[in-house]
Design a protein around this nucleic acid. Structure first.
Length: 186
DNA sequence: CGCATTTGACCGGCGC
DNA sequence: GCGCCGGTCAAATGCG
């Protein structure tokens, strides 16, 4: 995979250092390294990754109700509309959401897990659809959505929701190699 | 045949 | 209440 570098984005805010490659990897694989999250959605430039500029969005916004949250964690529109408080009952299913965007030609990033597509919707303000995937491992409820950036179709936004309850099924040595490179660059 | 994908229907929340 | 919207379901279809 060879992709051209994007021009470096804005200088990283000071708290970015908390989210190094291993943290990212941990998130990626549903391992909670007890990193401190922000309640509001935060956008950070995480790292250069194999020529990709990755930005992470993570939030801990526990929406209540059923087993689904409302609203995409990434929205094309500027405003991140907050839903009016509906926190009653403390049945707060704090599903961890973690999203990042990648400069890539392909939509689906092979992360080592097996996913089953269960839906696709058109995205407002974008000609590209958003795809919905579920982890196929039994009992594992992790979901992810993939869509392209509305302004830059070369950017793929991947949103993970939930944490895997099982190890990887396939080796992802490729990714691991890349990760090592990221670590040494710190 | 068994599994994944496609795709329109369906559903709940929200704004008007 | 009604319609829109984002998300999910599930029957049909595709594919190895």
């Amino acid at each position: 995979m060879i992709f051209l570098n994007s021009p470096p984005t804005s200088k990283a805010p000071e708290h970015v250092s908390k989210y190094n490659a291993s943290d990212l990897w941990a998130h990626f694989h549903g391992i909670d390294n007890s990193v401190e999250y922000h309640d509001r959605e935060v956008k950070e430039t995480v790292n250069k990754f194999d020529g990709h500029i990755m930005e992470a969005y993570h939030n801990k916004s526990g929406h209540i109700g059923g087993d689904h949250e409302s609203g995409p964690s990434y929205n094309c529109s500027e405003k991140n509309k907050k839903k009016p408080g509906k926190r009653q009952g403390e049945k707060v299913t704090r599903r961890h959401k973690f999203a990042f965007q990648t400069r890539s030609q392909v939509d689906v990033l092979d992360d080592g897990y097996r996913w089953r597509k269960y839906g696709q919707k058109t995205v407002k303000n974008s000609k590209f659809p958003r795809s919905y995937y579920k982890c196929t491992y039994q009992g594992c409820n992790v979901k992810k959505q993939i869509q392209r950036h509305c302004k830059d179709e070369g950017i793929v936004v991947t949103t993970y929701e939930g944490m895997h309850t099982h190890p990887l099924e396939r080796s992802v040595e490729n990714f691991d190699q890349i990760l090592k490179g990221m670590r040494t660059s710190y």
